[in-house]
Design a protein around this nucleic acid. Structure first.
Length: 334
DNA sequence: GAGACGTGGAC
DNA sequence: TGTCCAAGTCT
């Protein structure tokens, strides 16, 4: 992983750049290593220091984050970089309290930065550690109620020596051996003390409270291409779903399509295929309306972005799906 | 405490 | 296809 320093370097006391650890930990929130890797490389290449990031345009950061999800992380990433520069002289705080005061940095991320980047003895508790502790001590209390109990158990195991290596090791154990399904108990370094291994309960732990089913919502997106190749887009408000991201004008999304005004007053036509997408808490069936807009069109809603400015990769995935359908349509049109 | 908040991969 | 899941935070 590109944000790690080698074990040999850590053993010699060479610690990683706190900026890199912070960036990777924020990206890794609820996100797999495989998904994060390329984003991390692009972000650190484009903004090598926290000061560079703090000076970035909001839209550039949101566009670079597009596709990674949980966009509040990107908004808080910028807020945090600016806070580090304006309130902390461009250096990340090394204490839990200092780190916790930063936007987008909660108990997990603060402990991760403090232990990994500064080698302080803080207890890191993520989903991996919760699972490892639940099995090691055979805890049957369902999550999230079990969190305090699992955190206390994890804290007792946290060593004073090499806490950064330890934090990464426990998370790696959870990610590679003590996995949710088919844990590799036979090769686990903790197989001897593990209570769940002894009792045969490993695969059923940790218990979780059941989730609610996802409802299906419907909506309409309007995609207009002007004769000069410009696309009609809007910047979504900073709060809520896809907040701060670029998107197509359209209706709200609800069980029934809410009343709304179409932009431009062009002759909109529906595409035969819907854009289907699933968010954390609902399914979406999005009707895509397309229209050709005459040159010189001035929209009441949104703005036309010329093709040299617009990158489809700046769109969140649901908007990208709608674009791909519309783009194919306009190509057919010639 | 519970819900909002994305996405892509595994099974 | 549908469900679950991944290095959480904020409200």
């Amino acid at each position: 992983m590109p944000w790690r320093t080698s074990p040999a370097d850590r053993a010699r006391g060479i610690l990683p750049d706190p900026y890199h650890i912070w960036m990777s930990e924020v990206m890794l929130q609820q996100t797999t290593v495989a998904a994060v890797r390329d984003y991390f490389l692009r972000f650190t290449a484009r903004w090598p220091t926290v000061a560079d990031l703090a000076a970035a345009e909001d839209g550039d950061v949101m566009g670079e984050w597009a596709g990674l999800g949980y966009y509040a992380r990107a908004r808080n990433l910028l807020k945090c970089a600016r806070a580090v520069v304006s309130d902390h002289g461009g250096q990340f705080p090394d204490t839990l309290a200092g780190l916790l005061s930063l936007p987008g940095v909660g108990p997990y991320t603060a402990a991760a930065i403090s232990s990994i980047a500064f080698d302080r003895a803080e207890t890191v508790v993520d989903g991996n550690v919760e699972r490892v502790m639940a099995r090691l001590f055979d805890v049957h209390t369902p999550l999230p109620a079990a969190k305090p109990e699992l955190t206390a158990l994890a804290a007792e195991l946290t060593p004073a020596k090499r806490p950064g290596d330890y934090a990464q090791a426990v998370m790696d154990l959870g990610a590679t051996i003590c996995t949710p399904r088919n844990p590799a108990c036979g090769i686990c370094p903790w197989r001897t003390p593990c209570a769940a291994r002894r009792l045969g309960t490993a695969t059923e732990l940790p218990k979780k409270t059941p989730k609610k089913p996802k409802p299906t919502r419907t909506g309409i997106a309007y995609i207009a291409r002007r004769s000069d190749g410009a696309w009609l887009l809007e910047r979504r408000p900073d709060r809520g779903l896809l907040g701060g991201m670029l998107g197509w004008p359209g209706s709200d999304w609800a069980e029934e399509v809410p009343p709304h005004d179409a932009p431009l007053g062009a002759n909109w036509q529906p595409l035969p295929d819907l854009a289907l997408h699933t968010f954390t808490h609902f399914h979406l069936r999005l009707t895509v309306m397309v229209a050709q807009a005459p040159e010189g069109s001035n929209p009441q809603i949104g703005m036309f972005l010329p093709p040299e400015t617009f990158r489809a990769s700046d769109l969140p995935t649901v908007m990208r799906k709608a674009f791909d359908l519309a783009h194919a349509h306009f190509i057919e049109l010639g």
